[in-house]
Amino acid sequence: LKTAGVNTTDKEMEVLHLRNVSFEDAGEYTCLAGNSIGLSHHSAWLTVLEALEERPAVMTSPLYLEIIIYCTGAFLISCMVGSVIVYKMKSGTKKSDFHSQMAVHKLAKSIPLRRQVTVSADSSASMNSGVLLVRPSRLSSSGTPMLAGVSEYELPEDPRWELPRDRLVLGKPLGEGCFGQVVLAEAIGLDKDKPNRVTKVAVKMLKSDATEKDLSDLISEMEMMKMIGKHKNIINLLGACTQDGPLYVIVEYASKGNLREYLQARRPPGLEYCYNPSHNPEEQLSSKDLVSCAYQVARGMEYLASKKCIHRDLAARNVLVTEDNVMKIADFGLARDIHHIDYYKKTTNGRLPVKWMAPEALFDRIYTHQSDVWSFGVLLWEIFTLGGSPYPGVPVEELFKLLKEGHRMDKPSNCTNELYMMMRDCWHAVPSQRPTFKQLVEDLDRIVALTSNQEYLDLSMPLDQYSPSFPDTRSSTCSSGEDSVFSHEPLPEEPCLPRHPAQLANGGLKRR
């Protein structure tokens, strides 16, 4: 031991701790050491302190810390799992109470259905409401065949629209698609105040090879029609059969078919879209009749726009005509997947739907009320060519290029400059510069009032120099000039209409 001194630092001082000593042992101690050379000694003081209470040693090893962490984590996880189980049990009790009230408590799974309603004014964004509309049932219905791709499903009954099956008599087919079909039928007692009145209706139903998605689409269309409500110039929902059998959606019946066929059937002799010497046209149409058709469609679209509904496929083929020549817009409630459109795929009647699409819908897939206005301009062109085919002879690839360059279709022969300028306004490259349906209704209403009933179509000018029955994407082998976009001569082996020498072909294109 070194004694503290003047020249001794703290580091040089050493402390020796002795245990089991008493206060009597306190004092100075000297350590002597010697050898043959000499003797040396050092002294140190022993200080006795009071004994401290002994405390248990605390484990601070890493293993002990890990044990604490794992135990704490396990406890927290157990609490979370327990909370989830309690929540599930409570929510399951509430669901079972709800389904027992709906009398569908025996169901095993559900079809996820979404009601898609486009509400954005400047995009294709949609509001999806995840309302459960249908659930599968283990119960089988008697007297009705089961669908191959869709098991029997039981829908919640809506008393406002439900019609008993025994009050619906199915008739002949009116048309069909890939998985759905429409048949003519007679409904008894659609009007609650007149329970014995028989009404001719159209009934939409699924085919035998339909899938769950097809069922989902049909129900979504029905729900959309319920929500949009009734208007004179749209196909209205009349009722539905949802209980004890396949789903039947009952809508208004339009006896004169779609507008395109309606116009073609009323072309003057010699100007029909397909040469037929025995062709006997229906009643002749006046200019006022054509303007009235456009006015009614505009009114229907104005109503749909007021309900925040974007059609996305407005064309003469999707406008139906009733016995009283009332125009009714159809298929506005269809669920369309705008992100998976095949631009080169034709519709069932051979038309390319892209020829009715606005550039922003075609290139950027942006659907708005103003893109519907563009389609309405093409529909106007169809009306005043009596069912002509837009951009005849123009392949899709060429159409993309022409639209980007600002080309537009030429004025039809039997169309006034004012109406043609309306078409051109609908085809404005900037969507915000196109008229609204409200403005179109006002303009067409004024034109109808000024147009005489006696103004019949000028038969001295050809209505349509093209054969719409030909595929639109076909290139002409005998077109006049180098560019078949601006002219389209008859093919030698097929009868077509004579070309008027002083008139540019109706399907020609102009640059805006």
Results as ranks from 00 to 15, higher is better:
Ala449Pro: 09
Ala187Pro: 15
Thr347Ala: 12
Asn236Tyr: 15
Glu261Val: 09
Leu304Pro: 01
Pro246Thr: 09
Arg260Gly: 01
Ser292Tyr: 13
Glu360Lys: 02
Ala335Pro: 00
Val198Gly: 09
Val373Leu: 04
Leu450Ser: 12
Lys226Gln: 12
Ser479Thr: 14
Cys178Ser: 02
Lys232Met: 14
Asn276Thr: 14
Tyr248Ser: 07
Lys226Met: 15
Ile329Lys: 05
His407Tyr: 05
His340Asp: 06
Leu168Val: 06
Asp217Glu: 04
Ser469Arg: 11
Val373Glu: 07
Val326Ala: 03
Val394Ala: 03
Phe470Ile: 11
Tyr391Asp: 08
Lys256Asn: 15
Asp342Val: 08
Gln243Pro: 14
Asp166Val: 05
Lys401Glu: 05
Ile366Phe: 08
Ala265Gly: 10
Thr322Ser: 13
Lys207Thr: 02
Trp356Arg: 01
Pro392Ser: 00
Ala361Glu: 02
Tyr253Ser: 01
Glu252Gln: 15
Leu459Gln: 13
Lys192Asn: 08
Pro468Thr: 14
Tyr273Asp: 03
Pro431Ser: 12
Leu184Trp: 13
Trp356Ser: 02
Ala316Pro: 01
Leu352Val: 02
Trp374Gly: 04
Val169Leu: 14
Arg351Gln: 15
Asp337Ala: 14
Ser484Cys: 14
Arg474Leu: 11
Gln370Leu: 14
Tyr262Phe: 04
Val182Glu: 01
Glu397Gly: 14
Val373Met: 13
Ser292Pro: 11
Ile310Lys: 00
Val201Met: 10
Pro390Ala: 15
Thr416Pro: 13
Trp374Leu: 01
Lys204Met: 01
Ala305Ser: 15
Phe470Val: 09
Cys426Tyr: 01
Lys200Ile: 12
Lys308Asn: 07
Pro268Leu: 03
Ser432Pro: 03
Lys438Asn: 08
Cys309Tyr: 15
Lys355Arg: 03
Leu334Val: 02
Arg434Thr: 00
Tyr295His: 08
Lys204Thr: 05
Ile341Leu: 12
Met301Thr: 02
Cys178Arg: 03
Asp337Glu: 09
Glu418Ala: 11
Met222Leu: 14
Glu323Ala: 09
Tyr275His: 13
Lys401Arg: 10
Leu206Ser: 04
Leu459Arg: 12
Glu221Gly: 03
Val249Ala: 13
Pro195Ser: 08
Lys200Arg: 10
Val448Met: 10
Ile366Met: 05
Gly377Ala: 11
Gln433Arg: 08
Ala298Gly: 05
Ile310Val: 03
Leu386Gln: 11
Met225Lys: 02
Tyr466Asn: 08
Ile234Met: 14
Glu282Lys: 08
Met421Val: 08
Ala185Ser: 04
Leu184Phe: 12
Leu379Arg: 02
Asp445Val: 12
His339Asp: 08
Ser375Thr: 05
Tyr295Ser: 14
Tyr262Ser: 07
Asp331Glu: 02
Gly333Cys: 02
Ser306Thr: 09
Ser292Thr: 11
Lys411Met: 07
Asp289Glu: 12
Ala298Val: 09
Pro471Leu: 10
Ala335Glu: 00
Met423Val: 00
Cys309Phe: 15
His339Leu: 04
Leu450Phe: 04
Trp381Gly: 08
Gln370Glu: 04
Leu174Val: 12
Leu362Ser: 01
Thr368Asn: 13
Ala330Val: 06
Ile383Met: 14
Cys241Ser: 09
Ser479Ala: 15
Ile188Asn: 13
Leu290Met: 05
Val249Gly: 02
Glu398Gln: 13
Pro195His: 03
Gly245Ser: 11
Ile447Asn: 13
Gln454Leu: 07
His428Leu: 05
Met421Arg: 07
Leu190Pro: 08
Pro173Arg: 13
Cys415Tyr: 00
Asp324Ala: 10
Asp425Gly: 12
Arg424Gln: 08
Lys404Asn: 10
Arg267Met: 00
Glu212Asp: 06
Asp324Gly: 09
Met422Lys: 11
Asp410Val: 10
Asp324Val: 14
Glu482Gly: 12
Trp427Arg: 00
Val448Gly: 14
Asp166Tyr: 05
Lys307Met: 12
Met227Leu: 13
Ala187Gly: 06
Glu221Lys: 02
Trp381Arg: 05
Lys346Asn: 15
Val394Met: 03
Lys404Arg: 11
Ser292Cys: 10
Ala294Thr: 03
Asp472Val: 07
Asn276Lys: 11
Val448Glu: 11
Ile341Val: 05
Tyr275Asp: 08
Val485Ala: 15
Glu482Asp: 04
